[in-house]
């Protein structure tokens, strides 16, 4: 019965001691935390809202159907001519 708390406690100690003994790891964790903050807080909240957020599935279907069913005005300006020798 005591084996589960005992195991959890040894796992806790394993991680606690591991984190305490880090040297280079501290710098790397700071880097990771800054990066995760930038990705999930700044980028996700301010810049990367899903384009169809708030739409129901039916509305999403209709919107995509309309867009892929009638698209116009696109040309790939990077494409070379097809017959370069001519």
């Amino acid at each position: 019965m005591n084996s589960i708390p005992k195991m959890m406690s040894s796992v806790f100690r394993f991680y606690r001691d591991g984190f305490r003994q880090m040297t280079l790891g501290r710098t790397l964790w700071v880097l990771i935390l800054i990066k995760l903050f930038v990705i999930f807080v700044i980028m996700r909240l301010l810049f990367f809202q899903p384009a169809m957020k708030g739409l129901s599935n039916d509305e999403k279907q209709q919107r995509v159907a309309t867009e892929i069913g009638a698209l116009q005005g696109f040309s790939n300006r990077f494409s070379p001519s097809i017959h370069p020798e001519q």
Binding site: L71, Q72, F74, S75, F78, S79, P80, I82
Partner: peptide
């Protein structure tokens, strides 16, 4: 969806 066949050629 392709308007011009030249679009089918990548760079």
């Amino acid at each position: 969806k392709i308007q011009d066949k030249a679009e089918l050629v990548p760079p």
